[in-house]
Amino acid sequence: MSYSYVIINDNQENVLNIQSLADGFQNFRLAATANNYGDGLNCILEHQPQLVFLEIDPKDKASKLSLSLINELYRYLKEIPKIVVTAKNGNLALEAIKHEVFDYLIAPFELNEFRKTILKFEKSASSTVVTTPREPEQKPFFVDNDHSVKKDPEQLTICIKSYGDYRFIDAKDIQYFQADNNSTDIHLNNGEMITAFKTLKHFENVLPSQFYRIHNSYIVNINYISRIHTGNAVCYIKNTTTKLPFSKSYKGNVDQIIAVISSSGYLEI
């Protein structure tokens, strides 16, 4: 199988180094290179590669290369390519982990470390998700660095995976999602809150139909809405004192929520 990749780096020496190393692996094909934020974004959107080598500590600060380019990709792509961050040192490693990058390489790039990254990518690209549902009709929905799959909305299970720790959540138990920078807090009906290192936009693209985006910071489960006050622009969560604001840009979704709730078993007084 052939994989395309893009190099985004303002240091031409590093670009040539990465390309030279990648040329040693026959399944990889260079699609394009870029040396600044804007061109890099356009390269990814145009070629939609499977792998991106992204410099986040540029020599030329005017290039504006940083982890923020990853956030921008979620605005346009349903499936984000694997991002291998490159930098002069490991100072930005923690921030990169929060962005769920695939790997982190420090320049000058060594063949042995580069090979590990490539082999790990090939293993990830060729692997198949194997899960054991609690009931035959249940299909897990993974939220991790490797898989994001839309599944049956009736009995959806969401798996929050972090460093070998698998946390399974029934979608029906989720009241709402709340954005927290580049992560998302998941609020459950038992009062528990779980953090997933995915953006709210990511969840918006893959969640089933009972979840509605009502604000830049909130996605709500329609089954937990007890009241909608259009004058104050807030939604109330059942059996709690929680009020979620909704914004004008998502007013259409709120109108749709009202229409869905009133479509069956409904008596207006």
Rank of each mutant, 00 (worst) to 15 (best):
N14P: 06
R75C: 14
K251R: 11
N189I: 12
L54P: 01
I83F: 09
P49E: 01
D23A: 14
A196W: 02
E72Q: 08
I237T: 00
V52Y: 01
S126M: 10
T128A: 02
A171R: 05
T241L: 07
I80W: 07
E95M: 12
R213E: 04
L244Q: 03
A34T: 04
Q155H: 11
D255Q: 12
A96C: 11
K82M: 00
Y37V: 08
G164L: 13
L73C: 05
I118N: 05
G164V: 10
D10A: 15
P133H: 07
E72R: 12
V52A: 02
K151I: 15
H147R: 15
L267C: 15
T241K: 05
L77P: 04
F102Q: 14
F102R: 09
Y224M: 04
Y212R: 00
S162F: 06
I257A: 02
V143N: 08
S226Y: 00
V85E: 02
I83R: 01
A93N: 04
K123M: 14
I118H: 03
N112K: 05
Y224I: 01
N89W: 10
K120S: 15
C43I: 06
V234I: 11
P108W: 06
S4Y: 06
E55K: 03
I83K: 00
E46A: 15
N216S: 10
Y74P: 07
I261E: 09
E122C: 01
T33K: 10
E79M: 14
H187V: 15
V260D: 09
L45H: 03
Y104A: 15
I194G: 11
I222V: 15
K98F: 08
S126L: 14
S249C: 01
S162W: 05
I7A: 14
I7F: 06
Q175F: 08
K88S: 13
I261V: 14
A171S: 08
D173R: 04
L21A: 08
L94T: 13
E55V: 05
N221C: 07
K150S: 10
K59E: 11
R29Y: 09
N205K: 03
E72K: 09
E137V: 03
V52S: 01
R134L: 15
K248D: 05
S124E: 10
Y163H: 06
H215K: 00
C43A: 14
F28D: 04
L16Q: 05
V101Q: 07
S249G: 00
N232K: 15
S226P: 01
E192H: 11
D170I: 13
F109N: 07
V85G: 03
E137Q: 03
G40C: 13
N190E: 11
N253L: 01
I219M: 05
S66N: 09
A22K: 05
E192T: 15
T241E: 08
V206G: 03
G252C: 02
Y166S: 13
I8N: 04
F114N: 09
S127V: 00
G90D: 13
V130F: 04
I83A: 02
L45C: 06
F53H: 00
G24K: 07
N42V: 13
V84E: 06
T242W: 08
R75A: 13
F102D: 12
V52E: 03
T199L: 07
P81R: 10
L65V: 10
F246M: 09
I258L: 14
R134Q: 13
G24D: 10
Q178S: 13
V220D: 02
G90V: 13
I83E: 03
P108Y: 05
L67G: 06
Y212V: 00
Y76C: 12
K198N: 09
Y218M: 11
F121R: 02
K161F: 11
R29A: 03
